[in-house]
C-alpha cells in the first residue's frame, strides 16, 4: 500500500529517497515499444556504438518518465504540473543509475512545491538535471 504524504508534511530541503530505476535492455525496449520510439541507438549496443555512443542509451523522454514516477512514489496522489528536464549526458542502457530529488521551494497558497531532480550515471557523470512543480490536493 502506498504511504501518504501531505503538503503539510513537506519542508524546504526535504530529500526524496534515492531511486535506482531499471534501465536494462529489456526495460528500455519495453519503453521504446510503448513510446513507438524505434531507434536502434536505444535498443542495440552495436548500432549505438556505430553512431558514436559508448553503448545503447536511455531515451531522454524515458528518463523524464522515470523521474515523474519517482515523484509519484514519494508523494502518492500529488499532481505534477510541470516537469522540465535537461539532457546533459548519455545514460547507458544496462548500467546502474541513481535518481535524486530535493524540495527547493514551497507555496502554501497554491499548495505547490518545487523540486530539483537529478539522474547520475554509473560513472558519476550527471546525465539529467531537472525541476518539477508539484501540486497537492486539499
Amino acid at each position: 500500500m502506498l504511504h501518504s504524504l501531505s503538503f503539510e508534511d513537506i519542508e524546504l530541503g526535504d530529500e526524496l529517497s534515492e531511486a535506482h530505476p531499471d534501465v536494462s535492455m529489456a526495460a528500455v525496449t519495453k519503453f521504446c515499444n510503448a513510446a513507438k520510439h524505434s531507434f536502434e541507438r536505444f535498443t542495440d549496443h552495436e548500432a549505438a556504438r556505430a553512431e558514436g555512443f559508448p553503448g545503447a542509451i536511455v531515451p531522454g523522454i524515458m528518463s523524464q518518465g522515470l523521474l515523474a514516477a519517482m515523484v509519484h512514489r514519494w508523494a502518492p496522489g500529488c499532481n505534477i504540473k510541470i516537469i522540465d528536464t535537461v539532457f546533459r549526458g548519455s545514460l547507458l542502457v544496462d548500467s546502474e543509475i541513481v535518481m535524486t530529488g530535493a524540495v527547493t521551494d514551497t507555496d502554501e497558497e497554491h499548495r505547490r512545491i518545487e523540486l530539483d531532480l537529478t539522474i547520475i550515471a554509473e560513472d558519476g557523470r550527471t546525465g539529467v538535471i531537472g525541476t518539477a512543480t508539484v501540486e497537492f490536493p486539499e
Binding site: L2, D22, K30, F31, A34, A35, G65, L66, A69, R73
Partner: peptide, 17 residues
C-alpha cells in the same frame, strides 16, 4: 493500452496511471 504500457515502463506505481 499505450497509456498503461508507458506508465508501467516508467516504473509507475500510482494506479491513476
Amino acid at each position: 493500452e499505450d497509456m498503461v504500457a508507458w506508465a508501467n515502463a516508467c516504473g509507475e506505481q500510482d494506479p491513476r496511471f
